[in-house]
Simulated scan of single mutants.
Amino acid sequence: MTQSFEAAIRSFAPSLPLGVALSGGADSTALLLACARRWPGQVRAFHVHHGLQAAADGFEQHCVALCRQLNVPLHVQRLDARSAAGQSPEDAARQARYGALQAMVLAGVAAPGIPCIALAQHADDQVETLLLALSRGSGVAGLAAMPAYRERAGVAWHRPLLRVSGVDVRRWLREQGMAWVEDPTNSDTRFTRNRIRADLLPAVEAAFPGFRETFARTAANAWQATELLGEIAQEDLALIGLPPALGLLRQLSRSRQANALRHWLRHQYQTTPSAAQLAELLDQIAACTTRGHRIHLKVGRGFVVRSALHLDWYDPGVCVS
């Protein structure tokens, strides 16, 4: 079952002091307010100013006023989150936001030793993320959507509201008499996520009233499968070596080759191959039985190449001295 906002906060047990990502919208405003009340003096707020729209200054002003009212230290990072060629604006902003939040935590701008940061995504956000993954033909990593807890690069990320509906978050916030700011792009149906929210979710709720809970179980099951695939990939790469040895890689089944290569590229180079790119790479590896066979394939934002008896990857946009 979905949780009430109050129940989600009661069951949230992070390490302290706690960082809270604050956009100024209803969800993050509610999360910060609840955390500041529960752990007075132990909460810090982090706001990322994306510089993408005129309303961004208003978001920051709201965050400043709110944190002053709650007596919560606020730390603001301004950045240019414009997308690169071929990159979606939403993805560019998301990556820039998470990078800025992580950098602020690791730099100790709020206080040294903040072990974790809380994010305000809720059950509706999780459903939207899952539907986006389905529309793109994603594998289990995409269907895992957003985990409730994850450690990455020395930072623990919590999402305590993933079983709380967006309606319940706003209901609680109104009961507290608190204001928030609305992002004007949230109603812009040029963005796929907004079309899902406005057009698809009402129809899904009419047909399947308990969809938030069942979709959350699907995402949780997919996350377990993703973790298992990661463990298998690590075991295989420990035998194959880094960079991967072609001869040892060919001894694996095609599915395990694909799993190991995805893991290698994602964790070593922060790039993800498309399904077509990965299929072509696997075909080339199967055909690569002679010393003269050349591999030079576009994969992710760079190229996978054959280097003697191994595979390698490089980004032509990055100069290596």
Rank of each mutant, 00 (worst) to 15 (best):
R78A: 09
R78L: 10
A26M: 10
Y98H: 08
W157T: 04
V109S: 05
S23C: 14
S23Q: 09
D57M: 01
A84V: 13
L106P: 03
A225V: 07
S253G: 13
L265N: 05
R217K: 04
H47I: 05
L281I: 00
H50F: 14
Q102M: 15
I117K: 04
D312K: 00
A245I: 01
L101Q: 12
V72L: 14
D27F: 07
R291G: 10
L162W: 07
S307N: 13
Q121W: 14
V155G: 04
Q234M: 09
R152N: 01
T2C: 02
L74Q: 06
L131I: 12
L101M: 11
V109R: 12
H75L: 15
D80Y: 04
V155A: 12
E213K: 01
A118V: 10
P209E: 12
P184N: 00
P316H: 00
V140I: 12
A206L: 12
T218W: 05
R163L: 09
S253P: 05
N186Q: 12
Q176Y: 01
L228A: 14
Q176K: 13
Q87G: 05
R306H: 13
M146L: 08
M1Y: 13
L201S: 12
A258M: 03
S138D: 15
P316I: 06
A233I: 03
D312W: 09
G19D: 01
M104A: 11
R190H: 15
H263A: 14
L79K: 02
H122I: 08
A216Y: 06
